[in-house]
């Protein structure tokens, strides 16, 4: 029998990574569900999204506990430590994305009226980009591909552009047609949630870069942020 050094640490790190990927997938599904609920004004599905948020929170705490446990019992260092620290940050971002999906679902519950003939094209485009970006960042996390993580983060600019266009279009509609005001405001709220998801994907990309290269780089700078590089 050959004993491999740090086999237990490797097992625990692999288990954390595995759980992170499952959570990432669940969050992506939840966001997809929230958007389907919106398109179809499916209040039942919206309710399921809201109820499912508790499960995402539970998964987050389980991963958090596993990270604390591996630090306390295995004393990871260097790349192992960065992987654990990155997981602890990323898990929060994923869980919050679940909250944004629940936010969209709550909007559906508040909105009256029939199903949409079709959502504004800008909103659909924004949703597609956000979902694509999330899928990509989960993949770069799985592969610890920090070079591609930079590119994923860049996609957030397009989401921000879409959000600006959406805001402009909806305000225009509201000005032109008073009856569209209520729905317009709700859709703006949906757009806001998608925009925040894009920001969180960028935060995850930063953490992947940190995890894989040891470098911290602000990819989603706020105005006046000193860490902008």
């Amino acid at each position: 029998m050959i004993l491999r050094a740090r086999a237990e640490l490797d097992r625990e790190l692999a288990a954390i990574r595995e759980r992170m990927l499952v959570l990432g997938e669940r969050v992506a599904t939840t966001i997809d569900d929230s958007l389907r609920a919106l398109r179809n004004m499916d209040k039942k599905l919206a309710e399921a999204v809201i109820a499912g948020d508790a499960e995402l929170n539970e998964m987050r705490f389980e991963i958090d506990e596993a990270c604390q446990s591996v630090i306390a019992t295995q004393q990871p260092a260097a790349g192992d430590l960065r992987a654990v620290v990155a997981a602890m940050h990323i898990v929060v971002e994923l869980e919050r994305m679940g909250d944004h999906a629940a936010g969209i679902a709550k909007t559906v519950q508040l909105m009256g009226g029939d199903r949409f003939e079709r959502l504004p094209e800008t909103l659909e485009r924004m949703a597609a980009r956000t979902q694509d970006m999330l899928g990509q960042v989960v993949e770069v996390y799985a592969k610890a591909d920090y070079e591609r993580a930079y590119n994923v983060a860049l996609l957030d600019d397009k989401i921000d552009d879409s959000y600006q266009s959406l805001t402009h279009e909806l305000l225009q509609d509201m000005l032109e047609d008073e009856k569209s005001t209520t729905r317009g405001l709700y859709l703006l709220f949906v757009g806001h949630n998608l925009e925040r998801i894009g920001d969180r994907v960028t935060n995850i990309a930063e953490r992947v870069i940190f995890m894989a290269s040891g470098k911290m780089r602000e990819l989603n700078p706020e105005p006046g942020d000193a860490r902008v590089s």
Partner: peptide, 18 residues
């Protein structure tokens, strides 16, 4: 050294793999 060593041999050693 313990968070982002430059040399992969150091990384292997401080992570306990060598």
């Amino acid at each position: 050294i313990f968070t982002r060593p430059a040399d992969p041999r150091t990384e292997d050693y401080v992570t306990g793999r060598f």
